[in-house]
């Protein structure tokens, strides 16, 4: 029973709230001999595994540390170039640490505004008349529930595919939003939600749902 995160998107498509609840950390450390048996490439200011997944290190994982030193861009903290280091046989055996890339706040905002047109196109391409946008989107690792209110605000919950009752949870979060964000005199509409009460109540709700199921709320 895992809820991975909650996102709230405003009427105009901007991310106004996001909360990472239980995001699993995917970390792998391994010592390699020469020559390196995985292929690394440099893209988007990160060193990414592009081929040769093994021992839990998958394609798309990011190199985070070499021999315990953090990697920043394509360099180590002390300014050494990582690719030069990996090409030099003298540096082996070498210990590399990989992890799945974490979304930055910027990427989350980007994804939230990306969901907005998907939602609209889904209703336009509908074979049936008068259709809503995406309500549930499922992939093999998660299921995304989206609830759009009459006023156009979208509440999205990302959870495990087997977690039941998430559509009710989105409506409960809407209630919390109405109670603690909208009734807050210092909150202006369409702006990011920074209300302490809203956040604490939301975390409370998510934890109780995870522990004892949706029937308890």
């Amino acid at each position: 029973m895992v809820i991975y995160g909650v996102y709230i998107v405003s009427k105009s498509g901007g991310l106004i709230f996001n909360h990472d609840h239980n995001v699993p950390k995917v970390d792998n450390e391994k010592t390699f001999g020469y020559p390196l048996n995985i292929k690394l490439v440099y893209e988007n200011k990160k060193i990414v595994v592009s081929f040769g997944q093994r021992d839990g290190i998958n394609v798309g994982h990011i190199l985070t540390a070499v021999n315990g030193n953090l990697v920043i861009g394509k360099e180590l903290e002390d300014g050494k170039d990582v690719f030069e280091m990996l090409d030099d046989e003298k540096n082996y055996p070498i210990n590399l640490k990989f992890s799945r890339s974490k979304m930055t706040t910027n990427e989350k905002i980007f994804l939230a505004s990306m969901f907005y047109p998907l939602f609209a196109i889904a209703s336009q391409l509908s074979p049936e008349p008068r259709c809503s946008g995406i309500e549930i989107l499922e992939a093999d690792t998660f299921r995304l529930y989206c609830y759009q209110t009459l006023t156009g605000v979208k509440f999205m919950v990302v959870a495990e595919p087997t977690q039941p009752g998430m559509d009710i949870l989105t409506k409960r979060i809407y209630e919390l939003y109405a109670d603690f964000a909208l009734k807050n005199p210092f909150y202006s509409l369409e702006m990011p939600i920074r209300c302490e009460l809203f956040e604490t109540n939301l975390i409370c709700l998510l934890e109780s749902v995870e522990k004892s199921g949706i029937s308890s709320v």
């Binding site: 889904a122 209703s123 509908s126 259709c131 995406i134 499922e138 992939a139 093999d140």
Partner: peptide, 10 residues
């Protein structure tokens, strides 16, 4: 990856 999505009608 992506398996399906569901709307109110289809």
């Amino acid at each position: 990856g992506f398996l399906y999505y569901k709307t109110s009608k289809y």
